[in-house]
Computed example of a mutant assay.
Amino acid sequence: MKLSEGVEAAIHSAAMLAGVEGGATMPASALAEAFGLSPSYLLKHLQALTAARILESVPGPSGGYRLARVPEKISLLDIVLAVEGPRPAFRCGEIRRNSPARIDASAYVQPCGINAAMLRAERAYRAALAAEKLSDIVTEFMADADSRVVHAACAFAAQHARPQKSASRS
């Protein structure tokens, strides 16, 4: 299974926003700069995360994006579904019915075994993503990453954070 690059960008952006404290926001342009992405490319994914209520968009010259929920309540599945959509990765086209023998449709009353196996795998994959919380990723990064990388990421976030009057993360 191949996920789009937008999933990676969305997870990294959410992880960086998890480090922005006090309801502060970060502009999309800063998030794009942090990861060397095109601002217009990243904006599309930030908007998807906002529509899914993972992020909150604060308008105005000192606005930007912030998490709409605490990181403990955001799973990787939430982010993947926001970017990729809810449809399963495998979509059975029932090509088994395309045989040159042209067997009657009544011969295919049983569900396609390949489709059933792929859907079982999809459920397991989604369950694993649902168990992975954004807070755990951030905690692991802070504990395991090279201290230079941690320091640079924290300094970047602090430099680009925009304090706000109020926040509503639940």
Rank of each mutant, 00 (worst) to 15 (best):
I79N: 11
L43N: 15
Y125R: 15
L17M: 03
E140S: 09
M142K: 00
G64Q: 05
D104F: 03
A10Y: 08
R97N: 05
P111R: 04
G36N: 14
S168R: 12
V80E: 03
A153H: 00
G19A: 08
E33M: 03
A127M: 03
A28Y: 03
L119R: 04
E122S: 09
S170L: 08
D136P: 01
V58R: 01
H45E: 11
A18N: 06
H45T: 09
A121S: 09
A15R: 09
E122P: 06
R126P: 01
E72N: 14
L134I: 10
A101P: 00
A48M: 15
G85Y: 14
Q164S: 07
Q164F: 06
A14K: 06
Y41W: 15
I103G: 00
C154Q: 15
H160D: 01
P61H: 01
S38W: 09
R148C: 00
S170W: 03
S13Q: 11
G6A: 08
I137W: 04
A116E: 15
P88N: 06
L17W: 12
A158T: 14
A9S: 15
S147F: 04
P163E: 07
A32V: 11
M16Q: 15
Q159S: 03
V7W: 03
E8W: 10
Y108F: 15
A143Q: 05
V83W: 08
G60K: 04
A155W: 00
S166Q: 13
T50A: 07
P111A: 07
G60N: 05
G113K: 13
A15G: 09
L129Q: 08
V109A: 09
P39G: 10
D136K: 01
L81F: 07
L67F: 07
A155I: 00
Q159I: 02
L49I: 14
S40Y: 02
A30Y: 05
